[in-house]
Design a protein around this nucleic acid. Structure first.
Length: 359
DNA sequence: TAATCGTGGAT
DNA sequence: TATCCAAGATT
C-alpha cells in the first residue's frame, strides 16, 4: 500500500489565504436568500438546487420552495407530485425526488433533525461529497471540505495545478488541500468565500485578477497562466435525436404521458413521445398510434422546434390528430388532460415548448 | 472511468 | 451559431 504524496501548502500561505479571503468575503459577499440564517434544512435545499445551476436561476425557485415548504416536516409530508411541481423548470429532476426521499428519512429516523456528522449525512439520497461538506460547514460550523467547480478552479490557479478537474481523483486531491486551508473557527464562511471568489473574481474566463485578494500568493497569476487553468477534458457533443411528440385530442381533452421512474425527465409529465428515423415521419406516428390501439384522424404537423439537453439534442416534430376511437384500457402511464389541468401537473420545459402550440 | 441527468446564460 | 458550463450525484 503505497501512501500517496499529497500537496502540502506552506503555513504562511495558509495564513495569508485565510486572512485576505475572509476579509474580502465579509466586504463583498452577496446577500442571498439562503444566507439569512443557518437553518440546516434551508441550507440543504439551497445546496441541492445550486448543483449545476446558476445562483440567479435558483433564487426565485428557492423563495417559492421555502414559502411552500417552510420546514423539513412540511416538505416530508407533502405529496411527491406537489414537490416535483415546485421544481418544474429547474432541471435534473432526480435531485428533487432524492431530496424528498431523504427529507422523509430524516423526519422518520432522525426526529426531523438534519444529521450533523459526515457518516450519516453522506448516506442521504442526493447528498454527495460536496453537499455533505457544504451542509456540515455552513449549517453546523464543522471543518469539512466543500469542493465544487468554483473551488477546483480557484485551487487550480492558486497552486498552479494541471490536474484534469473532470476526474474524480482530482476532487479528492482538492479536498486534501481544502482541509489544510480551511480555518477552524469559520469553516462555513471560508468555504462560501472560496466559492464566492470563484463566482465573482476567479471566473472561468477573464478572471479579475487585479481585484483578487489572493493575487499576491497566486501561482497562476505569477506565471501568467490563469487563463490556461483549470485544465478540463472536453465534453462530448450531445447526441442528435429526431423525435415526434403527439398531441392526440378528443374534444376538449388530450392524452398526456407520465414518464418512467428512471431515465430522462423521470416522473415528469409529457406528451406521448417517440424517437424516429426520419423527421416529420407520419408513418411512424401512425404506427405508434395503431400499436397503442388508437384510431386517429386529421393527423398533421402542428409545429417543430429543437431542444438541447446536456447530452441529447432533440429535433422535435409535434404532430396532432383527433382520436376517434381507442381500445381500452389505454397504456397505464397515459391520462386524459383538459386545458385547465395543464398548470397543475409538472411538465418539463421541453414539453412546455410543445404545449405552447395548443394552449 | 465515463455516461447520464436539464436548463439557460455568457462568450 | 457553437461551445462552454453553473454551489454535482449516481451508476
Amino acid at each position: 500500500m503505497g501512501k500517496k504524496d499529497h500537496l502540502t501548502i506552506d503555513k504562511e500561505v495558509v495564513q495569508v489565504i485565510g486572512r485576505e479571503l475572509l476579509d474580502w468575503y465579509y466586504r463583498n459577499r452577496r446577500d442571498l436568500p439562503w444566507r439569512k440564517n443557518q437553518d440546516p434544512y434551508k441550507i440543504w435545499v439551497s445546496e441541492i438546487m445550486l448543483q449545476q445551476t446558476r445562483v440567479d436561476t435558483v433564487i426565485p425557485y428557492f423563495q417559492r420552495f421555502i414559502e411552500q415548504f417552510p420546514t423539513l416536516d412540511d416538505l416530508a409530508q407533502a405529496p411527491e407530485e406537489q414537490v416535483i411541481k415546485a421544481w418544474e423548470g429547474l432541471g435534473y429532476y432526480s435531485r428533487v425526488k432524492n431530496l424528498h426521499a431523504a427529507v422523509k428519512e430524516v423526519s422518520a429516523k432522525y426526529g426531523s433533525q438534519v444529521p450533523d456528522d459526515l457518516e450519516t449525512i453522506s448516506k442521504l439520497k442526493g447528498v454527495g461529497p460536496y453537499t455533505a461538506g457544504a451542509i456540515l460547514s455552513i449549517a453546523f460550523n464543522k471543518k469539512a471540505p466543500a469542493v465544487d467547480g468554483n473551488v477546483m478552479r480557484v485551487f487550480s490557479r492558486l497552486f498552479a495545478l494541471t490536474d484534469d478537474i473532470a476526474l474524480a481523483s482530482t476532487r479528492k486531491k482538492m479536498e486534501h488541500i481544502a482541509l489544510q486551508v480551511i480555518p477552524n473557527n469559520v469553516p462555513g464562511d471560508f468555504n462560501q468565500a472560496l466559492m464566492e471568489l470563484g463566482a465573482l473574481i476567479c471566473t472561468p474566463s477573464s478572471p479579475q485578477c487585479l481585484f483578487c485578494p489572493l493575487r499576491s500568493v497566486c501561482n497562476a497569476y505569477a506565471e501568467g497562466i490563469e487563463e490556461e487553468l483549470p485544465r478540463k477534458k472536453k465534453a462530448k457533443p450531445p447526441k442528435q435525436m429526431k423525435m415526434v411528440m403527439l398531441w392526440l385530442s378528443q374534444g376538449q381533452r388530450a392524452l398526456i404521458e407520465k414518464r418512467p421512474d428512471e431515465g430522462l425527465l423521470a416522473g415528469m409529465w409529457g406528451l406521448p413521445t417517440i424517437q424516429v428515423a426520419e423527421e416529420e415521419s407520419m408513418q411512424e406516428a401512425h404506427l405508434f398510434c395503431d400499436k397503442n390501439g388508437l384510431n386517429v384522424t386529421n393527423i398533421k404537423v402542428a409545429g417543430k422546434f429543437e431542444h438541447i439537453f446536456s447530452h441529447q439534442h432533440w429535433k422535435v416534430t409535434v404532430i396532432q390528430g383527433e382520436v376517434s376511437e381507442w381500445a381500452s384500457p389505454l397504456p397505464s402511464s397515459w391520462s386524459w388532460m383538459t386545458a385547465d389541468q395543464v398548470n397543475e401537473k409538472p411538465f418539463s420545459n421541453v414539453y412546455r415548448k410543445a404545449l405552447q402550440l395548443f394552449i
